[in-house]
């Protein structure tokens, strides 16, 4: 059964334009100039119940605008949308009982109070009876490993700790769909992975439909089965994550720091050296030609390593590759 149905959804904003400096401000005061910016340009898609979908794109692609229309925050300029059978902007309150949302840059937790106070407030907001609430809260506290954080003022929590509490708060009322807008933004590698693991575990246990936006390709790789890529407000890719990986996420960049100086050479089969210094190197690898584990094994066998970092290609590069493939001028060959 479809949880989310979008048909030609569009959203345009009027944006004021002004030339630089005081002169521009004065001119704008007398005769303001507005421009219509189409943030979302005809998005259509369907999402099944229990699906974990990644909705990705670079900054300004229209991800947050779409999620805001789906949660009833924004009214669209045109088009249709149904979330669990509700029209979000018309039946906002009815829908809100069945969905949870986490906006990475807009915390829900009260800043000066400990998370437990916001949890209690949410129990009131969602009209949960005391026993149901406490049972659910205790379950989430264990799942997100936040018992020690419950009574610490939010302002004293690290970003990763705060985000775990944020997501736990959004799940208190057992929502059928959770919208996670950039939940890993600003987190370090360990905190990101910890959060991804918990989301994955909860999805497996409760079959909650999860709509995840991110511009971190790592989120998608480790969490989702299906990925929708948008750019300039339009869907440019909608397929399984494994297809995206096979076609566009094959390239990895490895940054490595050595404990001792290198001899100026670094020969690894199937790996190109982008940059080589006395104590560090930047390497590039096509994972379809060689698995990353074997490269790391070779590096560790030949050198004493103090730090290593494996990075995905940036979202802009993935999008460029999608366009190149679609335009057929420079087809990207599919790997095995």
């Amino acid at each position: 059964m479809a949880s989310i149905v979008l048909k030609d959804l569009r959203k345009a904003f009027q944006v004021k334009r002004k030339a630089a400096g005081l002169g521009g401000s004065l001119a704008s005061l007398g005769r303001p100039r507005y421009e219509t910016v189409e943030a979302v340009r005809g998005i259509s898609l369907e999402m099944e119940s229990g699906e974990l979908l990644a909705f990705i794109g670079p900054n300004g692609a229209g991800k947050s605008t779409t999620i805001k229309m789906l949660t009833g925050i924004l009214h669209p300029t045109s088009g249709e949308a149904q979330v669990l059978g509700f029209v979000p902007w018309k039946q906002r309150r009815e829908l809100a009982y069945h969905i949870g949302s986490v906006f990475g840059q807009k915390p829900q937790l009260w800043y000066h109070l400990p998370p437990i106070d916001t949890f209690d407030l949410f129990a009131h907001i969602y009209e949960l009876d005391r026993k149901t609430y406490e049972r659910r809260r205790d379950f989430l506290v264990e799942a997100f490993d936040i018992r020690d954080l419950l009574e610490v003022p939010v302002r004293k929590l690290s970003l990763g700790q705060r985000m775990r509490c944020e997501i736990a708060a959004s799940l208190l009322h057992h929502p059928r769909i959770v919208f996670l807008d950039e939940p890993t933004i600003g987190l370090d590698v360990v905190a990101k992975q910890q959060l991804r693991d918990t989301i994955k575990q909860l999805h497996a246990e409760e079959q909650t439909t999860i709509f995840l936006t991110s511009h971190d390709a790592g989120d998608i790789e480790s969490l989702c089965e299906r990925v929708v890529v948008i750019n300039h407000g339009q869907v440019i890719f909608d397929d399984a994550v494994k297809v995206l990986k096979r076609r566009y996420l094959r390239r990895k960049v490895i940054e490595v720091r050595f404990a001792e100086p290198t001899n100026g050479h670094l020969d690894l089969a199937g790996v190109s050296v982008i940059k080589l210094g006395r104590y560090g190197a930047k390497l590039e690898l096509d994972t379809s030609s060689r698995p990353i584990e074997t490269v790391i094994q070779d590096l560790m066998a030949g050198h004493s390593i103090v730090d290593i970092n494996v990075m995905d290609p940036p979202m802009e590069e993935i999008i460029r590759a999608i366009y190149q493939r679609d335009s057929a001028f420079e087809p990207v060959a599919e790997g095995a």
Binding site: T71, I73, R92, R93, A96, Y97, S101, K106, Q108, I125
Partner: peptide, 12 residues
Amino acid sequence: GRLDYYLTLPRP
């Protein structure tokens, strides 16, 4: 743009 928090919750 700080009404988002209130709009995602089921309260008047």
